[in-house]
C-alpha cells in the first residue's frame, strides 16, 4: 500500500502540479473536440500540447518537453492556423446538426473505449522500472546515434522527402 502524501509536503505539491497538467491537457483536448469554430479548436490543441509538455517536464524530461512545444505548438499549430486562415478567411461555424444516431453511437463507442482502457489499466500487472539514465540531452543523442541510429536515419529520410515535395510544389514560383 502506497502512503498518500500530505497536501502541503513536497510530494503533495508535486502531485498537485501533475494533476494540474492533466487537467490542462484534458480541457485543451475537450476544447479542441467540441469547439464550433476552427480557430478555437486550434487554441484547444495548443493548450493540450502545452499540458502534455508540462507532463514531460514533470517526468524529468525537459528536452522532450521543449521539443513538444517547439515542434507541436511552434510548427504544427502554426501551419494548421495558416491553412485555416489562408483557405477560408471567413469564420467557419459549424452548421446544422448531424444525424440523430450520431449522439448515441458516439456515446456508446466512447463508453466502450473508456471501459476497455480502464479495464486494461486495472488488470495489468504494472511493473515499476528503475530509472535507466538521467534523460539528459547527451544520453538521448548518444542513444539516437548508436542504438536507434536506423530509426534516426529513416526519420531524416522522411523529412527529406517532405522537403523535396515542398520544393516540387513551389517550383512554379509566385506567378504560377
Amino acid at each position: 500500500m502506497i502512503e498518500t502524501p500530505s497536501l502541503f509536503s513536497a510530494d503533495g505539491l508535486v502531485g498537485l502540479i501533475f494533476l494540474f497538467m492533466i487537467v490542462v491537457t484534458f480541457c485543451g483536448g475537450l476544447l479542441a473536440a467540441t469547439a464550433d469554430r476552427l480557430v478555437r479548436a486550434l487554441s484547444g490543441l495548443v493548450i493540450c500540447f502545452t499540458g502534455v509538455a508540462g507532463i514531460y517536464y514533470f517526468l524529468n524530461s525537459p528536452f522532450m518537453a521543449m521539443m513538444q512545444i517547439l515542434i507541436y505548438v511552434g510548427a504544427v499549430c502554426v501551419t494548421i492556423s495558416f491553412a485555416i486562415m489562408l483557405a477560408s478567411p471567413e469564420q467557419k461555424q459549424r452548421r446544422g446538426t448531424g444525424s440523430v444516431l450520431a449522439g448515441p453511437i458516439g456515446f456508446a463507442v466512447g463508453a466502450l473505449i473508456f471501459a476497455g482502457m480502464s479495464g486494461l489499466a486495472l488488470t495489468t500487472n504494472w511493473q515499476q522500472f528503475d530509472k535507466i539514465n538521467e534523460g539528459s540531452v547527451k544520453q538521448i543523442g548518444h542513444e539516437l546515434l548508436t542504438t536507434y541510429s536506423m530509426v534516426f536515419e529513416l526519420i531524416s529520410l522522411v523529412l527529406l522527402i517532405a522537403i523535396i515535395g515542398a520544393v516540387v510544389i513551389a517550383r512554379g514560383g509566385r506567378n504560377q
Partner: peptide
C-alpha cells in the same frame, strides 16, 4: 535548465 537555448526558442514559438 539543461536545455536553456531550446526553452527560449520553444516559448518564442508560443
Amino acid at each position: 535548465i539543461e536545455v536553456g537555448v531550446l526553452l527560449i526558442f520553444a516559448f518564442a514559438a508560443l
